[in-house]
Amino acid sequence: MNPAGVFVPGTTWLHRVSAGVKVGGLFAAVLLVLLIRTPLLAGLAVLVAGVVLASARIPWSVVRGGLRGLAIVLGVLFLVQWWASGLDDAAVTLGRGAASILLAWTVSMTTRVAAMLRVLEVGLRPLTWVGASPERAALTVALAIRCVPMVLDAVRQANEARSARGARPSVSSLAVPVVIRSLRMADGLGEALVARGQPRD
């Protein structure tokens, strides 16, 4: 797994604008895009989204793979809808989908995971109204990110133990050990948090 996420380093205006502004702008843009009802405006939205993505100067080799996947999914949806409710509706759906996904990509590819975590913490502030803590929520997400390689390692260890025993891959030789190893890992992590007096209220 790429630990940096889908972020691509750069120095364009999109990289420099604060993460909160980008996420807020994305929400506003998606709301506007959802109001589109004509193929012409939908095409214009895709064009604008494309220009915004291009202004982030993401290397073509990174964008290409994603564009291919997007083209396949949206192409299938387009054909199904063309068949079901006509060309105009299909074009509007295609344009709205492509524009909002391109914009969302642009935000994710120009914003570091750490910056997005801080936006998440701010976004979760309403949690305090129901007695939950946004800091605790953001810390849990950060812990989970750190745990992914550890769990992948637990999968590898369980698989090595299985082949050392000469057992064939099965639920009891692979899935059960992985889950038990994960739970033990959670015990250790929990104790480490307690020892550090986390989470602070």
């Binding site: 849990t140 015990d187 929990g190 307690v194």
Partner: peptide
């Protein structure tokens, strides 16, 4: 401990 389990 709950946080750790949720994260893992």
């Amino acid at each position: 401990r709950d946080m750790a389990q949720v994260a893992v």
